[in-house]
Design a protein around this nucleic acid. Structure first.
Lengths: 386, 386
DNA sequence: TTGTAGGCGTTATCAC
DNA sequence: GTGATAACGCCTACAA
């Protein structure tokens, strides 16, 4: 175990050349070395199982081919999907991923970033909404290392990749409006989060568009867990007994919402319609199957990593946030039937109420066919993003 | 951005000493240096924001203070919980975590490990059940680097940390038996997985104990997703229409099972009782609330990381697998009421069928009070573990 | 076509 | 108390 690593010097010695020559050959450059010498070196190298020492290489090249991933709010499966996709993309580009998870309190953000910087990661990917308000973290991200963030960074200066949550929330709420609902509540994540405020804006946009004035009573805060979402739902029912639809900010919370509605004797969707966010793999199989906004986690990760790598390579990053579209997947929980395309389609009329169990099946694989909207937009204002 | 890092030489120069002296001081050793020189050096160091270069340090010390985490089967939130806890534990011990995710196919196991080894991780934590059958991977784990695995490694020689899934499955099934069920089906993960076979053994143990001969028809395979679990459930209902209870191998799959049962018009728990595995945070809020075996993901991660670090430090690892106990959390989905303690308690009689929504609330925080069983066991045979 | 010199930032050992 | 010398494994010139 922990066997001794073979260095390039041993390879060179065994091949009867200097180690620098061996280095040239093994780095595969188009260097002037006789074919047979090269062949001999290569043969010796892999007979000995030689593998270059990445650490030594990093030292001299001043690059570790590693990116740091700061991850927070892992309660949800969403981040997990993101992290996996990010690592995969990074590896495809020859980079490894060093992770730093944030604890609930989130006061260790600066320490975790410092740890990553100490290890000389080439760049940092911040996927930790709980750091949105952290000025120290924002400063480190801006000054000490190339970075890309998935959430708002106070003061800006850090490229952002996210989803168009405002538009998504608007589409979801609009769908509920079209179904005839006028008293539409929402169970949200923490108000202080940017993504939450974006969604609240979209929700209000859709209401106003329909001539409904949003009421504070209808928006109840939870903390992404099913338990708090259930409590929020009970509060909502108490405040506004006439509510007939709820827009929830995550599928995990939706489980809590459905639970509370069941306890309260309000059948879904007959008495209350529910639309959620994330479209986790299980959403389709809840009873009733859950309508949800599909957030392109994997694609977001891919974009973010690629942006980061380009930024590391010296390319100037985009000034405006990159926002990917979310897509409404309509299933039974809202009683609706057809999904509007990626952006809500004004010409579509309220669909019939019939709903079968097969509605909203996810497509066999990959993303659904494009519907003519661009695959990503660049928002005008950071105020409207994730 | 990407500012130049300050080296110890600069610090030394600014402090008017040689860089070796600065090194001694900054490494905090009990070295003979005059107090004032030391103070001066420290002052300069943090006025300049000096941070030692971990890469250089790793090179000379032949240790990166980094462990590699090979993660597979991330579909489930379970692995996510595990990974977070592992990273946290590692960091608490001054180690960072480099991750390598496996794709579905799982044929890249050796490549991912090689990547980690190339980067000179001090050890590898394998949390990838899909590599159970991979002999090449097993060999690398055995020979090239200290390792700890969460799943079976062919040929042995790699310390194992897991849960006592056989006992857990036995307790769950026994609970169903006590409730009066005699036709108990099971919706499992892939049969080839060790954890699945352990659970099947536990399931059969409990049946035989009750004088019921297990039938092949009652065990239906799925692949951890809700979709396949729903299909498996339909198949089970078709094969054995009289089935009145189902033991499911994960909470995510349980969502699919509940969905299929609802579609088939079989109310839970009135017509069919359901018990699952994992006890994800959402289990309590499904409708009906889901009984589940709580698997101690975080504790498993902690143990595994600590074992790995000790093994890296040269301590001889335990020969037998470390198995942590699982605990049955009884909620509404099986119609039962009281949870047997960590290990099934033979003196307990079948509880009354009444079930309220508050049953099985998780304790306010942390683990439930111990019930006299040891907190970890060491199994006699690898055949019975996870 | 090959070898030599120098350096990446650090720690460790030993003189002074 | 302090500093010089050496080494970790590799790469990039440049000289032979």
């Amino acid at each position: 175990m922990a066997r001794r690593y073979v260095s390039i010097k041993e390879v060179a010695a065994r091949a009867g050349v200097s180690f620098q020559t061996a280095s040239k050959v093994l780095n595969g450059g188009n260097v002037r070395v006789s074919a047979e010498t090269a062949a001999r070196i290569v043969a010796v190298a892999d007979s000995l199982g030689y593998r270059p020492n990445t650490v030594a290489r990093s030292l001299v090249q001043r690059s570790t081919a590693t990116i740091g991933l700061i991850a927070g709010d892992v309660t949800d499966g969403a981040l997990s999907q993101f992290a996996v996709a990010a690592e995969r993309t990074a590896r495809r580009h020859g980079h490894a991923v060093l992770v730093g998870n944030l604890s609930e309190s989130g006061d260790d953000g600066a320490a975790v970033i410092q740890m990553l910087i100490d290890r000389r990661v080439d760049g940092v990917l911040a996927a930790a909404p709980q750091l949105e308000g952290d000025l120290e973290v924002a400063d480190m991200l801006r000054r000490y290392v190339p970075a890309v963030s998935l959430s708002h960074v106070p003061g800006g200066g850090v490229p952002l990749v996210g989803s168009n949550h405002r538009e998504g929330a608007k589409a979801a709420t609009r769908h509920l409006v079209r179904l005839g609902h006028t008293s539409i509540g929402t169970v949200t994540g923490p108000f202080r989060r940017h993504v939450v405020r974006s969604r609240l804006h979209g929700y209000e946009d859709a209401l106003r568009e329909a001539g409904i004035e949003p009421s504070e009573d209808l928006a109840v805060e939870a903390d992404w867990t099913p338990g708090t979402a259930a409590a929020a739902t009970r509060l909502l029912l108490e405040r506004v007994p006439a509510v007939t639809a709820i827009f929830v900010h995550s599928d995990t919370m939706a489980i809590g919402v459905l639970s509370a509605l069941a306890s309260a004797g309000r059948p879904v969707p007959a008495a209350v319609a529910v639309v959620s966010c994330d479209d986790m793999p299980f959403a389709e199989y809840l009873v009733p199957s859950l309508s949800s906004l599909r957030v392109p986690f994997a694609e977001t990760a891919e974009r973010a990593v690629e942006l980061l790598l380009r930024s590391i390579a010296g390319e100037p990053p985009p000034q405006a946030p990159v926002l990917l579209p979310v897509e409404l997947i309509v299933r039974d929980s809202c009683g609706g039937r057809r999904a509007p395309a990626r952006t809500a389609n004004p010409s579509e009329t309220g669909p019939p109420r019939t709903a079968t169990f097969r509605q909203g099946r996810r497509p066999p694989q990959g993303r659904p066919p494009a519907t003519g909207t661009p695959s990503a937009t660049t928002a005008r204002s950071e105020q409207e993003d994730s």
